[in-house]
Design a protein around this nucleic acid. Structure first.
Lengths: 234, 234
DNA sequence: ATAGATAATGTAAATGAAACACTTATAGGA
DNA sequence: TCCTATAAGTGTTTCATTTACATTATCTAT
């Protein structure tokens, strides 16, 4: 009997544990960071891990991911996207688990610190990520790669910044994601050319005496931009 | 009790049916086609569907997808990549099923026609795709979108052509994927500039009296190309 | 008043993409 | 065998985009 002979016959099929794991990125103004958790249960208790949970009978994958994020960080309405599904037979030593990895971009300063502490979490710079359980390290590396690709095509950087931000802040963010220095003149020119930022009259003076003007993301213009089939290369 | 309190406690968790569905693309020399199957079992028997099967206990997702493809088309060693995982609670009326969609690019002329016929399959042009069961239509649309993006960045076109091919054939393929006409001078210039094609001495005379030279894909040069961090915009 | 530090700005050169038309090779029929 | 029809093959110019690069402006603190 081969695979297809039994296709779509529901009874007698193997059911499997399914989990969602979240790769949570945040930006602290200097560098891109990753939120990791100390695993609380056996096996592998005490080791660093992504946050995740099993899928419940009555919840979709996307909703599960959203809820995990809400419970662990207090954040909702964040950028959250499926990364890849991991389904090697022996990937979890406890029992077979298929895991759908999601990655999210969060505003680090809006985080609910109580939630985070409750779960024994810690932010790590990308160059100081500890060894992770199972295939979580692989998930993280793929997420970083995907983020680098995506940030060049879509303006997802806003998800990592606060409501308002300065162009120098934004440049630092892009530099920390792409891991390379960008020319400030070219960066500003390009970023402003999309015409999706609105300059405010206030300045952020925390980083310099002169101060840098705050900008806000202009959703209406962005929606037009998307409708016209955007191209957002940095 | 919230989601995270129970995270990674294996016992007592809900197990779920998990399936793999394959979107199979092929190119017949004129247009890009999609392989669809008449569903053989209830519910929804007789309707058009992607080919798929439930995951067995002892097989990874990737291997399941490979095997499905092998059984239904006789093809192995084809381009096969995860597309997205579909996990809405009510997506399957029979019972909850989480499905990992894969898409593959095959050489239509190498297909095992017996296998295909045995499964009541049919090739459809992208403009004549019938209504599909469940969320398979959505999967197909996403796969087409992904293919269009991907073909601009990676030389996956080779997977849809035979061992050897002419540049006009290749241009038709790209035009049928991207759904727009390309300038033959610019296309050839660009394609040859990657330096991953080797010209042979034979010509294909089926399409013209003059005949077009066959080229073959040069894997060594391509590997160099990849190693240097390619960029394959068409 | 000045020094120090970051923000803000423009232009020229190089590269890459797009637009465009004619010549070449061959088979098949006159 | 010569002519015709048909698709294959080829270069150049224009335009747009990207990269490289240096100075002035603004403000605070001393």
């Amino acid at each position: 009997m081969n695979l297809l002979d039994t296709a779509r016959v529901y009874t007698g099929q193997t059911k499997i544990l399914v989990a969602v794991d979240c790769i949570v990125f945040g930006f602290d103004g200097q560098q891109l960071k990753l939120l990791l958790f100390k695993r609380k249960v056996e096996p592998l208790k005490g080791q660093w891990s992504l946050i995740g949970a099993f899928i419940k009978e009555d919840m979709s994958l996307d909703d599960s991911a959203k809820q995990i994020l809400l419970e662990s960080t207090g954040l909702s309405n964040v950028f959250l996207e499926e990364l890849k599904t991991y389904g090697a037979v022996e990937r979890d030593p406890g029992e077979r688990v298929i895991s759908i990895a999601y990655y999210s971009l969060t505003r680090l300063n809006e985080l609910d610190l109580d939630s985070v502490e409750e779960y024994d979490a810690h932010w790590f710079g990308l160059d100081e990520i500890p060894e992770l359980i199972l295939d979580h390290g692989e998930m993280v590396q793929l997420a970083i790669k995907r983020l680098r690709e995506k940030v060049r095509r879509q303006p997802i950087g806003f998800n990592l910044l606060g409501e308002r931000f300065t162009l120098p802040q934004m440049q630092i963010l892009y530099e920390s994601i792409l891991q390379k220095e960008l020319d400030p003149r070219n960066f500003r020119k390009k970023m402003l050319s999309f015409d999706i930022l609105t300059k405010t009259r206030e300045k952020d003076k925390s980083a310099s005496k002169k101060g840098a003007f705050y900008y806000v993301f202009n959703k209406e213009k962005f929606d037009e931009f998307v409708a016209n089939g955007y191209n957002f290369e940095i």
